[in-house]
Amino acid sequence: MTTLHNPTIWEISDSDNDGDEGAQGDLKRSSNAKLALAPPLSDGYKRPSQTRKRRSKEEMEADKEKGRGMKEARERKRAAKELEKEEKRKQQQKRKEAAEQLNSLKPENCLKCLTVCVDPALLQQEGSDILLGTLSSCEWRYIIEQQQLPNSITWTRNLPQGEDGSATMEEDQVVQVLGATQFLDMVITVKKMIDSGGGDSAISRDAAKVLTLLVTESRPDYRRRGHETIQSKYGGENLNVEEVLVYLQLYKNMSVVFLDGWQEVTDHICAVTKSLSKRPLKLLTEKVDLPFCVDGSWASGVRVEKDGSGLKQVWSKQIQQLNRVSPAVALCVTAAHPSPQLLLQAYEASGSEEDKKRLLAGLVVEGEGKDRRIGPDVSARVYRCFTTQNPELVLD
């Protein structure tokens, strides 16, 4: 009997054993042949036995919750960055505005904001064109406008938009230009007012203004000629011009300046204008706090925080203001008496006056070399400084 062999199909054996064992052997050999000829499995292919186990509903919800949390974290981080960027932009804007404000306070820029207001009556005086010509050559702004006080000159300042709710403000300086005859008439009127004890209706002026009288046409013999003119108008009685000048200075805050002609008047007006242009920056730089307790911190100052830290350093700085008191001596005193109140209590607890003066004398001051004591001199000066009732007392 002839047998056909095919490796890819069932193999028929010619063995006489037709039992189950022979059939199983033939089936096994045929399966091995199929596996040997089958193509190799790719790496991405997963056999059904290696398929991932299906997740439960709780696991999927947990993953979703985790995803939402990560998204919220990213949103918070993005919002924080935007907030930080906005805050940085605001700080830059504030610094820019502060720099612009400081730059506007410089005298050369303040001059551009000032306007000199000249009363029209002054233009009738000979030589007044010198003033207008000088203002024009300096490129300073001026206007011809009737003033509350005749023959006077005032100043106005343009304000930044929105400041104080107005566009301009009036400066407190007022200059009144009088001739010699006008000034003598005013002196006679004021003298009569002083002698009669009457009111000051003869001097009409704004109390908030600082008035300066510029008297022109004065000559070297002015005082002699002035006395003669005053005596003739005042009935021959003795009239002291200096008395009137002192009264105007002390009681009316009015200064009188004698000048020769409009050139000197113009120089005075220019000096006042330049002084007013320097005022804003000067007021800003003259804000001085106590040197031993300041908001900032520099070589001579100490910063005090809201929690009170820094007060001990302030206490030490206060003692160092005394002559010949070194930082080491001040540190020794503050270590023994941590506050001024405790030092005053120690003085009260002492016996005699001499004991109070020598209270600090025995304190040891540690130095780089050998230690030393404060001594009676410094101890007595500290005692006088904190207990005296005389503000004019000389400590040394």
Rank of each mutant, 00 (worst) to 15 (best):
residue 6 N to C: 13
residue 8 T to D: 14
residue 11 E to T: 10
residue 12 I to A: 14
residue 18 D to M: 12
residue 28 K to W: 08
residue 29 R to I: 11
residue 33 A to L: 10
residue 37 L to R: 07
residue 38 A to E: 09
residue 44 G to E: 13
residue 60 M to N: 10
residue 61 E to H: 06
residue 71 K to R: 15
residue 81 K to R: 15
residue 92 Q to P: 02
residue 93 Q to K: 09
residue 98 A to V: 02
residue 100 E to R: 06
residue 121 A to P: 01
residue 133 G to W: 03
residue 135 L to Y: 04
residue 137 S to F: 05
residue 143 I to S: 14
residue 147 Q to I: 10
residue 153 I to C: 03
residue 158 N to D: 13
residue 158 N to I: 07
residue 162 G to W: 01
residue 164 D to A: 13
residue 164 D to F: 10
residue 169 M to F: 01
residue 172 D to F: 08
residue 176 Q to V: 04
residue 185 D to T: 13
residue 187 V to M: 01
residue 195 D to A: 12
residue 202 A to L: 05
residue 203 I to V: 08
residue 225 R to C: 06
residue 228 E to N: 08
residue 229 T to L: 10
residue 230 I to M: 06
residue 231 Q to F: 06
residue 233 K to N: 12
residue 248 L to D: 04
residue 260 D to C: 12
residue 274 K to V: 11
residue 275 S to G: 12
residue 275 S to W: 04
residue 283 L to E: 09
residue 288 V to S: 07
residue 289 D to N: 11
residue 290 L to A: 11
residue 294 V to K: 08
residue 303 R to A: 11
residue 309 S to F: 03
residue 310 G to T: 01
residue 311 L to Y: 06
residue 333 V to A: 04
residue 334 T to C: 12
residue 345 Q to E: 15
residue 349 A to C: 05
residue 356 K to A: 13
residue 359 L to C: 04
residue 362 G to I: 05
residue 364 V to H: 05
residue 371 D to S: 15
residue 387 T to E: 05
residue 388 T to P: 00
residue 389 Q to L: 12
residue 395 L to S: 04
residue 396 D to Y: 10
